[in-house]
Amino acid sequence: MEDYLEFEKSIAALEKKIIDLESSEKFSEDKISSEVDKLNDSVVKLTKKIYSNLSPWQCVQVARHPLRPHFLDYVEKICDDFDELHGDRHFGDDRALLGGVASIDGINCVLIGHEKGRTTEEKIYHNFGMSQPEGYRKAGRLMKLAEKFNLPIVSLVDTPGAYPGIDSEERGQSEAIARNLSLMSSLEVPILVNIVGEGGSGGALAIAVGDHISMMEFATYSVASPEACASIVWRDSSKAELAAEAMQLNSNNILKLKLIDEVLEEPLGGAHRSPDQAALILKRSILKNLDKLQSYSSDDLLERRYKRLSGFGAI
């Protein structure tokens, strides 16, 4: 059985009925299969209905779904090959923010992204996708490498935020993030960003400045996690649901504000129900947009990027 979210209980009930019916011996096979078909139709309809109208808080839950595809899943599903490159050359190799040189359908690029991990062991190893300064510095190093050898950059964002640790502060968490922001504004190669899961705060933005920014349909992107925003504004982290509503952190709202360029429609019931299809959707978008961005000269690209950046929140 898949993990069902709170608001998917009615779907879970229907799917359980199907399983029960399939193992039932009370009815004839024909009867069972026609009933199952009907129920399956109902599941599709119900899932469509629920998912066409998710609240921001429900999106948060889908974006954090334990089975949602992560960076390494996408690497496996969309790359012809991927050579991971390690380390920031100063302190260490962050495991929450990964990167390397990849080929996607014959197009070479530098691919970076946050990895949260899925099992408990993996989550700890990847620090729940919360990067320390060396992660941002590694990403910065790889992006400079991309510029040097004229490779486009593809960045997949999925983090609750930068790691809140004593050692992160000692090694300059703020500077590491800030440095990437200024670097990414001036790199002379195309930068393609997709928010695949959680786009949490400065930790997300540190690899999310680019020429084309897309979001998976049920991904979220906000100035702080709903819990952090609730504790800052309401002084009560249990008001996270209200904070998610107030920040309008879901993709369609963000698209309306023109802060992203594109929303990628997810498979029925979210990317976690069909990771292969989700990967295909992401891959098509990457290829289409890389093709478009590679037609710009580097001067045009930079001018276009500056214009975009100075237009964000212009009044």
Partner: peptide
């Protein structure tokens, strides 16, 4: 960053940093 403008505020980090880079 100001919570009440959410992502618009977050983007100001990128916007200001881009202009500091321009000065540089």
């Amino acid at each position: 960053a100001r919570m009440q403008e959410s992502l618009v505020s977050l983007y100001q980090m990128a916007r200001t940093s881009a202009f500091i880079e321009k000065m540089s």
